[in-house]
Design a protein around this nucleic acid. Structure first.
Length: 412
RNA sequence: CGGGGCGUGGCGCAGCGGUAGCGCGCACGGUUCGGGACCGUGAGGCCGCAGGUUCAAAUCCUGUCGCCCCGACCA
């Protein structure tokens, strides 16, 4: 999948939300290599056992793996900096492309062989310390998903090959999901069907209410890795009492590119996407209804206005003035500038030779949260048309108040 | 790897023995101009590839390559 201009803006916003919440957790960002030496993976036995690992050979015959996950890399890195209990805990995260040789990629961004992931690794003095950290991560994750406009449930799931405990998955329920989640209709109990001890139609152990099943997309997870990796890489520290102990490790994944796909699955209607304000590629979709044959003369090549800079503002605008058409364009131009100065990201659809209906349909499809229209009509009323993507009706907002109104909308 | 399906203009498809067509898109001219307008003209295809059958193959047969869906596996 190639990330095109609009989608990339969404991905970057999602990544920044994730980044902020990781920093709030006390974690620091790093960037680890994506190309791993075979030796690290042989040491943990996963060179052979990790079936989705991409293995490759250099010209000289040296073997490498493409990073599918980073325990093999982060553990030796942290070992180099930890000697004393005073050096712990350590919490490091990165946002990086992961490679996994999936047997069958599907559903676009929801499962690919190459995908973006935030992975957080924490190293603690004791198991209790890690246990105390888990709810903090859970809180941060739920905050991330909420800020991204999706609501996730925490489901218990299998711990995987390297953990005795169950892991926790953050599941967004949608028909597009591939996991089957058994959940309680009244409390927040949820289990992945792969390990479920409850039965569909049965009673929830917590509150006695009915259990139902839904499809879910796993957007994040938490694993208690114990000392599995710190044993292998000999990540020891000296305790206050002078004993040598292995650090206890946690691993927390969150699929950034998958989250973008999930946001769409959770926010669309028959007309297109409805981006939550927090991750929308733009804040405002400005539509200038300049009738055809408008400004720069016929046949002037005009790429679709998808950048932050309107094409027509780059030189030719206004050279062949056409009365009212010119006025509309100039008014939109002025509004564009004011919105930008107010801090709004504006997508200005200043295409000519495109009908109003088509522009509106495109605006709905792209799903920017707020659509503002400038036209002859709105000029006469000395106002701007205001329509939110999620609502059916449009209203007029006076020209004097529009900037304040937009600022208020973006803050809300 | 097992099961199913599909490869025909840029995209989506029809055609399934007689030499290729529709919708959208694109180009040009004109009309229209706030919810995906209309009329006219036009450009664009070795029908995935290779063999074979036939007077004749997009169409039938064989092989091959690619893609999609379901399953095992998985953030």
């Amino acid at each position: 999948f190639a990330w095109l201009p609009l989608g990339l803006r969404v991905l970057r916003k999602v990544e920044n939300i994730v980044r902020e919440e990781m920093v709030n957790l006390g974690a620091q960002e790093v960037l680890l290599p994506a190309l791993h030496p075979k030796e690290a993976w042989e040491k943990t036995g996963r060179w052979k056992s990790f079936d989705v690992l991409y293995r490759l050979k250099s010209q000289s015959g040296k073997e490498f793996a493409l990073g599918a996950t980073h325990e093999e890399v982060i553990t030796p890195v942290v070992k180099a900096f930890v000697q004393s209990y005073r050096d712990l805990p350590v919490k490091l995260f990165q946002i990086q492309t992961k490679f996994r040789d999936e047997l069958r990629p599907k559903s676009g961004l929801l499962r690919g062989r190459e995908f973006g992931m935030k992975d957080l690794y924490s190293f603690h003095r004791t198991s209790d310390e890690l246990q105390a950290f888990l709810p903090e991560v859970t809180r941060a994750y739920l905050e991330i998903f909420e800020r991204c406009g999706v609501s996730a449930r925490v489901a218990t799931a299998s711990g995987g090959a390297f953990s005795k405990d169950h892991s926790f998955e953050f599941q967004v329920t949608t028909p597009a999901g591939e996991d089957r989640i058994l959940l309680c209709s009244s409390c927040d109990f949820a289990e992945n069907a792969e390990i479920a001890v409850v039965k569909l139609g049965g009673k929830c152990p917590r509150c006695g209410k009915k259990i139902r099943e839904e499809k879910g997309i796993e957007v994040g997870n938490t694993f208690n890795l114990g000392t599995t990796f710190t044993d292998i890489f000999d990540l020891e520290y000296e305790t206050e009492e002078g004993r040598r102990e292995k650090a206890v490790m946690g691993c927390f994944g969150l699929g950034t590119t998958r989250l973008v796909g999930t946001i769409v699955e959770a926010n669309y209607d028959e007309r297109g996407i409805m981006w939550p304000k927090t991750v929308a590629p733009f804040d405002v979709h400005l539509v200038a209804l300049v009738p055809r044959g408008g400004l720069a003369g016929k046949g002037a090549p005009r790429p679709a206005a998808q950048g932050t800079r309107p094409v027509s503002a780059q030189g030719t605008a206004g050279t062949t003035g056409r009365g009212r058409h010119e006025e509309v364009h100039a008014a939109a131009d002025a509004l564009y500038g004011e919105l930008r100065r107010a801090g709004a990201d504006v997508l200005w659809d200043d295409r000519e030779s495109v009908s109003a209906g088509e522009k509106f349909a495109d605006a709905d499809l792209l799903g920017v949260p707020l659509r503002l229209v400038v036209s002859e009509k709105t000029l006469k009323a000395d106002s701007i048309e205001w329509k939110e993507r999620g609502s059916a009706e449009a209203k007029l907002v006076s020209r004097d108040e529009i900037i304040k109104a937009v600022e208020g909308f973006l803050r809300a």
